[in-house]
Structure formats: structure tokens, C-alpha cells
Amino acid sequence: MTVVVPAAGVDAVTDDGAAPPARQRQRRDGPLGRQNLLAAIATGYLPLILATAIIALPLLWMVIGSLKAPSEVVTQNLVLLPQHPSLNAYREAGTKIDIGRLFLNSTIVTVIGASIKVLLAITTAYALAFVRFPFKRVIFVFMLVALMVPPQVALVPNYILIADLGGVDTYWGIILPGLGTAFGTFLLRQHFLSLPTEILQAAEIDGAGHFTKLLRVVVPISTPTIATVALVTIVTEWNDYIWPLVITTDPARMTLPVGLTQLKNIEGDASSYPILMAGAVMVIVPVMVIFAALQRFIVAGLTQGAVK
């Protein structure tokens, strides 16, 4: 059993560079001993690099694929990098299906849906945390249980309701059923309850009503948590698939993931892979950019409640 000393102890340099690689000597090796260094690479860096590569390479392959010519894809001989990288596939995708429109639809649905959801989460959480009401606990449990009901199970009933109301192929039909938000409410309520009560009481003495307290005190001091909720909501709305898939049939109203399904159906053969990869880039890269810039908030939001 090799004892691997964490790299934090590297300042304690020892001079065992010439230590024989005999098994019995390993334990006495210093942190920079050859055995330890090898072990750190074998059990630390190697798996880390391997895992990172396994995650990153398919995404890189997607981007490269979207820049290839069809002839570079329809071949048994692997073409690693395109000879003449071009954005043709993106243009081509636009002629098969109105991809600009899909992008716009996704943006509209995400912006409107996420804004309303965040707003509802803030108001509900504020009321649950600070406004007096007899059945608060009941309403909180009502929210908590909703958190565990999967939206997928509600597919047929919601489809029938929205279709009856004339919501097929409309923006509101896509947005409305997902607007109720238990996740954001729960996260924000927990945060609001942790705020120092003195601040709110001070505002109260200054004669502030609930709306002033909400807008002038609670929201400004809670921006990081609200940002967390907003980002997670935006990403979820953007990626949302099953409901928009069911409720839209007209390409003019489809969101990007639904339109890509359509594109895959009509472009079955291998020569269309660059086009499909261009589509995949358009749905994945915006989220990747947001994630790269603000991953701290997103990870915190998605792993909230797990480690308690």
C-alpha cells in the first residue's frame, strides 16, 4: 500500500531521488519521492485528465463536426479536422428548418417563462417567510410535495386542458403549465428565513409596508440567491423538451430542442450530420457559456439541499 502525501506538503522536500524502487522502501519516501509522484499521477492526475477528456472530447467533436463538409463525414476514413472549416452547415440548417426562428422561440419562451417564474418564486417565498397567515404551514407543505411530483406524469391531462383552451402552437401554451414554481420558492424561502430580522424590523419602523420591504430590502440583499434561482430556471426552461414537443406541431412555434428533433427526422442520412451538429451547437453552446461564466451559482442551486 503506497502512502500518498497530498501535494500540499510539497514544501517538505526530501532527497530520495535515488531511492531504489523496492516495495519496502515506498513508505519512507518523501512527498516528492519518485514512487509518490508516480502514485499521485496514477491515482490522481491520470483519472482526473481521463474524466475531463471523456467529458470534453464529445463536445469538442460536436463543434468540429459542425464545421465539416458532408463528404468529410460520409466516409469510413475518419477525418479528424475539416480541410476547410466552414459555417456552411449552419447556413444549410437554416434552409432545412428555420433555425433562426427556433432560436428566437426558445429565447422568447425562456425569457418570459423564467422571468415570471422567478417573480412568482420571490413573492411566494417572501409571503411564506414574512407575512402572517393562518395556513402558512399547509401552503408550505403543498409547495414541498409539488417539488416531488414529476411534470412528466401530467402529460396527457395538461395536453388535453391546454389543447381545449386553444393553446396548441402558441407561446402561452408552451409557457403556462410550467409557470408554477416549487423549486425557486423553496430555495428562496430558506434563504429569506436566514436573513437577520433586525433589518426588516428597522424598515418596518421607518414605516415600510410589505411591498417596500420586499423591493427595497429583501430583494437587494438577496441578489446572489435570486441569481442562483434565475440561472437554474433559465437553463431548465431552455432545455425543456417533453412539454414543448407535445404541445407544438407548427415549426414556426417550436423551440430549439423540438425543432432539432424535427431536423433529425427529416435529415436521416449521414451526410446531414454537420447540420445536426450545427443544431446541437446552437442548443448547447449558449448554456455552456452561461455555465462557464456563472458556474458557482448554478452548481450551488442544483446541489442545494443535498448536503445538509
Binding site: 464529445p58 463536445l59 467533436w61 460536436m62 463536426g65 437553463v235 431552455w238 432545455n239 423538451y241 430549439l256 430542442p257 432539432l260 428533433t261 433529425k264 450530420y273 445536426l276 451538429m277 443544431g279 446541437a280 451547437v281 442548443v283 448547447i284 448554456v287 455552456m288 455555465f291 448554478i298 442544483l302
Partner: peptide
């Protein structure tokens, strides 16, 4: 956090 549809397409490829 990435779209399941996008990821699915990448892996089909």
C-alpha cells in the same frame, strides 16, 4: 446542465 436533445445528437454522431 446541457440540453438532453443536444447531447443525444452529439452521441448519435
Amino acid at each position: 446542465v446541457l440540453s438532453g436533445v443536444g447531447i443525444g445528437l452529439v452521441w448519435v454522431f
